[in-house]
Design a protein around this nucleic acid. Sequence first.
DNA 1: GTCTATAATTTGATAGAC
DNA 2: GTCTATCAAATTATAGAC
Lengths: 210, 210
Amino acid sequence: MQRTEKQKVALSSETEEKLMKAAQNAFIKYGLEGARMQEIADEAGISKSMLHYYFAKKEKLFELIMRKAVLDVFANLRKILEENDSVMSKIHRLSHEYLDYLHEHPYLPLFVLHESHKDPAAFKNDFLPPAETAFTTRFVAQIEEEIKTGKIRPVDPYVLFAQIMSVCVFPVAAQPVLQGIMNLSADQYKMLLKQTQQQMPAFFERILNW
Amino acid sequence: MQRTEKQKVALSSETEEKLMKAAQNAFIKYGLEGARMQEIADEAGISKSMLHYYFAKKEKLFELIMRKAVLDVFANLRKILEENDSVMSKIHRLSHEYLDYLHEHPYLPLFVLHESHKDPAAFKNDFLPPAETAFTTRFVAQIEEEIKTGKIRPVDPYVLFAQIMSVCVFPVAAQPVLQGIMNLSADQYKMLLKQTQQQMPAFFERILNW
DNA sequence: GTCTATAATTTGATAGAC
DNA sequence: GTCTATCAAATTATAGAC
């Protein structure tokens, strides 16, 4: 009666990759409601019915994409913040590795943020389990520790973390608007992002160094 | 044959206000496709058909809301950046006035950003006319001027502007996610925003002062 | 101007042949 | 497994009485 749920049917890894890519593109650009199953199917080179064959519901597919997006965004961040480095070293690594990653996936952060606004509590519950986000608490603790030992100047550690995130994510996520109001070409904006990447550590050094 | 388009029919200003508020809430939270006309009508206390009586198409209503949102977000920014003040004075005023405004309308920036991602070129064309955004170019020029005269340290003016925007907007816009990953309560996050507001000028003073 | 009832359309989901 | 054709549901849009 209650058959075992077999969410994922076997499908060639090539097709799966194309499908996930197509779904990600559609959902990231248009959101859950704005994305069209037909478009996803077309872009993946399969029929619409195949989509329903593999993923019973649009919502399930969306959930999968969102989970992957959240995981990706935070896995890259976590990797750096959990290293055995000083705060300033981590900021340096963020400016290189994390920003490189974000530049390759510029739409991911906004996608996550947009969805989180619909129902923040539910979002946290579904996609931000405490175990996955504990690394931030540890990083904040590290900041407090370095302040206590006088390694860096005293600042509110939460504020510092929020500012690091802001300076990393916002220039990438807000590209269309920032580029628009600054009247820059796509190439000029790309250069601005490179500049931001280079200057970021120096900025935080000035804030944190005595 | 071609009757004059009378986009807006007379309607009591009280009803209009409730309607705009309802539409704004719905669109901001769920986006163009996610928002439901029924919900907007309900929240405004009118029937769904009245919505179509006043605004022929959902898209028209959305356009109105978006135009208002963009105007609001930039009018507040522009007001400060066009004053006859020094760069640092403007940063101080941003931290007070602009952040106060953003704290009262935390969802506006992300709404604008989300929509801009669907079709950046069209978005710029429809909602970011050069005349409305020229103030940023003037601000960038002012930064260059103050660098030339040695009033502030040399930095890339575009990068500086992007960073100012980042630090202002992102902590507000990303609240659900940042609050989630930092494991803070709503009240705790509100305090963090207040702290950010206070520390922001000092942050940029350290970057810009010799 | 405002409503209820209904049409039209869009789009997600399924049936059934191959 | 994959497709075409079709259904069902949701939602925008309109007609017509009052």
